[in-house]
Amino acid sequence: MDKFVVGGLVVAILIAIMAPYLASSDPDGLESAAEKIINPEVSDEAVLESPMPDYVIPSLGEDPISGVVAIIIGVLVVFGLAYGLGYVLKKKET
C-alpha cells in the first residue's frame, strides 16, 4: 500500500480520536428543525437496533474512549468495504 493510503488512514484515525472530544453534542440541522416544526404525530423510533448506536460501544458506556473505539472500527470497516467494492467493480484491463 502506498504512502498516500497510509497517510490518509492516519488522518482518518486522528479525526476518529479527536471527534468524541471535540464534536458538538448539539442537535444537527435536521434534528434542530424537527424540534421546532415536526408534525407531532411522527415518531422517529429506529426499526433496527444497531450494534454501536450514536457512535459508542454500549458495553464501554458513554465515555469518549468508547466513542474513539467505535469510530475507529467504523473507519476500518468503511475503508475495507470501499476498497473491496472498488476492487471488484474496477475497470477491466484490456
Binding site: 458538538s24 469510530i71 467504523g74
Partner: peptide, 27 residues
C-alpha cells in the same frame, strides 16, 4: 484510483462523526 476511493470513504466517515457547532444551539 481504488485506494484513493477507499481512503476518501474512510476519511469522510470519520469527519461525519465530528459535528461542528453553529449558532442557534445547532451543529
Amino acid at each position: 484510483k481504488v485506494p484513493l476511493l477507499a481512503v476518501l470513504a474512510a476519511g469522510i466517515f470519520a469527519i461525519q462523526a465530528m459535528n461542528i457547532p453553529i449558532p442557534w444551539g445547532t451543529s
